[in-house]
Computed example of a mutant assay.
Amino acid sequence: MNLFTQDTHVKKLSLKNPIHFLALGFGSGLAAKAPGTFGTLAALPVFLLLSFLPVSSYILVTIIVSVVGIYICDKAARDMGVHDHGAIVWDEVAGLLTTLIAVPMQWQWILVGFALFRFFDIIKPWPIKWLDAKVSGGFGIMIDDIVAGIFSLVCLQVVLYFF
Protein backbone atom coordinates (compact mmCIF):
# COMPACT_ATOMS: atom_id res chain seq x y z
CA MET A 1 0.00 0.00 0.00
CA ASN A 2 1.38 3.38 -1.02
CA LEU A 3 0.91 6.15 1.54
CA PHE A 4 1.90 8.91 -0.88
CA THR A 5 0.20 10.11 -4.02
CA GLN A 6 1.68 9.11 -7.35
CA ASP A 7 -0.18 11.89 -9.19
CA THR A 8 1.92 13.25 -12.05
CA HIS A 9 0.79 16.81 -11.26
CA VAL A 10 2.25 16.53 -7.76
CA LYS A 11 5.55 15.39 -9.24
CA LYS A 12 5.88 18.90 -10.67
CA LEU A 13 6.36 20.18 -7.11
CA SER A 14 9.38 19.88 -4.85
CA LEU A 15 9.45 19.79 -1.07
CA LYS A 16 12.80 21.60 -1.38
CA ASN A 17 10.93 24.62 -2.73
CA PRO A 18 9.64 26.57 0.34
CA ILE A 19 6.44 27.63 -1.47
CA HIS A 20 5.65 24.05 -2.47
CA PHE A 21 6.61 22.76 1.00
CA LEU A 22 4.09 25.11 2.61
CA ALA A 23 1.40 24.55 -0.03
CA LEU A 24 1.70 20.80 0.55
CA GLY A 25 1.24 21.34 4.29
CA PHE A 26 4.83 20.36 5.15
CA GLY A 27 4.37 17.28 2.97
CA SER A 28 1.09 16.14 4.52
CA GLY A 29 -0.81 16.87 1.31
CA LEU A 30 1.09 14.05 -0.36
CA ALA A 31 -1.07 11.48 1.46
CA ALA A 32 -2.72 9.21 -1.12
CA LYS A 33 -5.98 9.15 0.87
CA ALA A 34 -7.65 12.09 2.63
CA PRO A 35 -4.93 14.71 2.04
CA GLY A 36 -7.22 17.42 3.47
CA THR A 37 -7.48 15.56 6.75
CA PHE A 38 -3.72 15.05 6.85
CA GLY A 39 -3.25 18.75 6.06
CA THR A 40 -5.53 19.61 8.95
CA LEU A 41 -3.51 17.30 11.20
CA ALA A 42 -0.35 19.09 10.06
CA ALA A 43 -1.91 22.34 11.27
CA LEU A 44 -2.07 21.07 14.87
CA PRO A 45 1.64 21.65 15.68
CA VAL A 46 1.33 25.13 14.16
CA PHE A 47 -1.68 25.78 16.40
CA LEU A 48 0.19 24.48 19.44
CA LEU A 49 3.10 26.83 18.74
CA LEU A 50 0.80 29.81 18.26
CA SER A 51 -1.42 28.99 21.23
CA PHE A 52 1.06 30.65 23.58
CA LEU A 53 0.45 34.01 21.92
CA PRO A 54 -2.11 36.51 23.18
CA VAL A 55 -5.40 36.14 21.27
CA SER A 56 -4.82 39.38 19.33
CA SER A 57 -1.40 38.16 18.14
CA TYR A 58 -2.81 34.72 17.31
CA ILE A 59 -5.50 36.36 15.17
CA LEU A 60 -2.90 38.55 13.43
CA VAL A 61 -0.72 35.51 12.61
CA THR A 62 -3.81 33.63 11.36
CA ILE A 63 -4.66 36.54 9.06
CA ILE A 64 -1.06 36.60 7.78
CA VAL A 65 -1.14 32.81 7.21
CA SER A 66 -4.38 33.26 5.26
CA VAL A 67 -3.26 36.20 3.14
CA VAL A 68 0.15 34.67 2.36
CA GLY A 69 -1.72 31.43 1.62
CA ILE A 70 -3.39 33.10 -1.36
CA TYR A 71 0.01 33.48 -3.00
CA ILE A 72 1.33 30.09 -1.82
CA CYS A 73 -1.69 28.17 -3.10
CA ASP A 74 -1.87 30.13 -6.35
CA LYS A 75 1.83 29.54 -7.09
CA ALA A 76 1.62 25.80 -6.33
CA ALA A 77 -1.55 25.41 -8.41
CA ARG A 78 0.06 27.21 -11.35
CA ASP A 79 3.22 25.11 -11.04
CA MET A 80 1.09 21.95 -11.04
CA GLY A 81 -1.18 23.17 -13.82
CA VAL A 82 -4.25 22.23 -11.75
CA HIS A 83 -6.57 24.54 -9.81
CA ASP A 84 -7.10 23.47 -6.18
CA HIS A 85 -5.42 20.08 -6.43
CA GLY A 86 -6.10 17.94 -3.35
CA ALA A 87 -2.42 17.93 -2.40
CA ILE A 88 -2.52 21.70 -1.80
CA VAL A 89 -3.51 21.84 1.86
CA TRP A 90 -2.23 25.19 3.14
CA ASP A 91 -5.88 26.26 3.08
CA GLU A 92 -6.61 23.55 5.66
CA VAL A 93 -3.87 24.97 7.89
CA ALA A 94 -5.43 28.43 7.71
CA GLY A 95 -8.93 27.01 8.20
CA LEU A 96 -8.02 25.11 11.35
CA LEU A 97 -6.14 28.09 12.79
CA THR A 98 -9.30 30.14 12.19
CA THR A 99 -11.44 27.48 13.87
CA LEU A 100 -9.28 27.36 16.99
CA ILE A 101 -9.20 31.09 17.75
CA ALA A 102 -9.59 31.57 21.53
CA VAL A 103 -10.12 27.87 22.23
CA PRO A 104 -9.07 26.58 25.66
CA MET A 105 -5.88 24.51 25.54
CA GLN A 106 -7.62 21.23 26.32
CA TRP A 107 -7.44 18.30 23.94
CA GLN A 108 -11.23 17.85 23.99
CA TRP A 109 -11.88 21.33 22.60
CA ILE A 110 -9.11 21.01 20.03
CA LEU A 111 -10.63 17.68 18.91
CA VAL A 112 -14.11 19.23 18.65
CA GLY A 113 -12.66 22.10 16.61
CA PHE A 114 -10.83 19.66 14.34
CA ALA A 115 -14.02 17.64 13.79
CA LEU A 116 -16.13 20.73 13.14
CA PHE A 117 -13.65 22.08 10.62
CA ARG A 118 -13.41 18.76 8.77
CA PHE A 119 -17.23 18.55 8.77
CA PHE A 120 -17.72 21.99 7.21
CA ASP A 121 -14.79 21.52 4.82
CA ILE A 122 -16.15 18.21 3.54
CA ILE A 123 -19.92 18.92 3.57
CA LYS A 124 -19.49 22.46 2.19
CA PRO A 125 -22.84 24.05 3.06
CA TRP A 126 -23.80 27.29 1.30
CA PRO A 127 -21.90 29.61 0.74
CA ILE A 128 -18.82 27.40 1.07
CA LYS A 129 -19.80 25.18 -1.87
CA TRP A 130 -20.61 28.21 -4.01
CA LEU A 131 -17.26 29.84 -3.19
CA ASP A 132 -15.44 26.59 -3.93
CA ALA A 133 -17.10 26.35 -7.34
CA LYS A 134 -17.12 30.00 -8.41
CA VAL A 135 -13.95 31.65 -7.07
CA SER A 136 -10.68 30.79 -8.74
CA GLY A 137 -6.97 31.31 -8.18
CA GLY A 138 -5.22 31.33 -4.85
CA PHE A 139 -8.05 33.34 -3.30
CA GLY A 140 -10.52 30.68 -4.45
CA ILE A 141 -8.41 27.91 -2.96
CA MET A 142 -8.23 29.71 0.38
CA ILE A 143 -11.66 31.32 0.80
CA ASP A 144 -13.82 28.20 1.11
CA ASP A 145 -11.60 26.84 3.91
CA ILE A 146 -11.49 30.21 5.68
CA VAL A 147 -15.30 30.34 5.61
CA ALA A 148 -15.44 26.71 6.81
CA GLY A 149 -13.09 27.80 9.61
CA ILE A 150 -15.37 30.74 10.48
CA PHE A 151 -18.44 28.45 10.56
CA SER A 152 -16.51 26.04 12.80
CA LEU A 153 -15.26 28.88 15.01
CA VAL A 154 -18.80 30.17 15.56
CA CYS A 155 -20.15 26.69 16.36
CA LEU A 156 -17.27 25.94 18.70
CA GLN A 157 -17.61 29.26 20.54
CA VAL A 158 -21.37 28.67 20.98
CA VAL A 159 -20.67 25.21 22.45
CA LEU A 160 -17.95 26.68 24.69
CA TYR A 161 -20.35 29.38 25.89
CA PHE A 162 -22.84 26.79 27.10
CA PHE A 163 -20.22 24.51 28.64
Results as ranks from 00 to 15, higher is better:
residue 30 L to F: 07
residue 36 G to L: 02
residue 11 K to W: 10
residue 8 T to R: 15
residue 40 T to Q: 11
residue 37 T to N: 13
residue 19 I to S: 06
residue 6 Q to T: 14
residue 4 F to M: 14
residue 19 I to M: 13
residue 24 L to M: 14
residue 42 A to D: 03
residue 36 G to W: 00
residue 24 L to P: 00
residue 36 G to A: 02
residue 39 G to Q: 08
residue 33 K to P: 03
residue 31 A to P: 05
residue 32 A to C: 05
residue 27 G to S: 01
residue 22 L to W: 00
residue 39 G to H: 07
residue 22 L to A: 05
residue 31 A to Q: 02
residue 7 D to P: 15
residue 7 D to S: 11
residue 41 L to E: 04
residue 29 G to E: 09
residue 7 D to F: 08
residue 35 P to N: 07
residue 17 N to G: 01
residue 22 L to M: 12
residue 26 F to T: 05
residue 34 A to I: 11
residue 9 H to N: 12
residue 7 D to L: 09
residue 4 F to I: 08
residue 38 F to Y: 05
residue 32 A to D: 07
residue 17 N to D: 12
residue 20 H to F: 03
residue 13 L to G: 04
residue 11 K to E: 10
residue 26 F to K: 06
residue 11 K to M: 12
residue 34 A to G: 01
residue 26 F to R: 12
residue 23 A to S: 13
residue 18 P to T: 00
residue 29 G to W: 04
residue 43 A to Y: 04
residue 33 K to H: 15
residue 18 P to C: 06
residue 12 K to S: 10
residue 4 F to G: 02
residue 14 S to G: 15
residue 22 L to Q: 06
residue 41 L to K: 10
residue 15 L to D: 15
residue 38 F to G: 02
residue 27 G to K: 09
residue 30 L to C: 13
residue 44 L to V: 15
residue 16 K to S: 13
residue 33 K to G: 11
residue 2 N to M: 14
residue 13 L to P: 09
residue 5 T to K: 08
residue 36 G to P: 13
residue 32 A to P: 01
residue 12 K to I: 06
residue 5 T to R: 03
residue 7 D to W: 13
residue 40 T to K: 08
residue 2 N to V: 14
residue 14 S to H: 00
residue 33 K to M: 10
residue 34 A to K: 01
residue 38 F to Q: 02
residue 24 L to N: 03
residue 27 G to V: 05
residue 11 K to N: 10
residue 32 A to H: 05
residue 43 A to H: 07
residue 40 T to Y: 02
residue 30 L to A: 04
residue 31 A to D: 00
residue 21 F to T: 09
residue 33 K to E: 13
residue 44 L to H: 04
residue 8 T to S: 13
residue 40 T to S: 15
residue 41 L to C: 03
residue 45 P to Q: 12
residue 5 T to D: 04
residue 2 N to E: 09
residue 35 P to F: 01
residue 30 L to I: 05
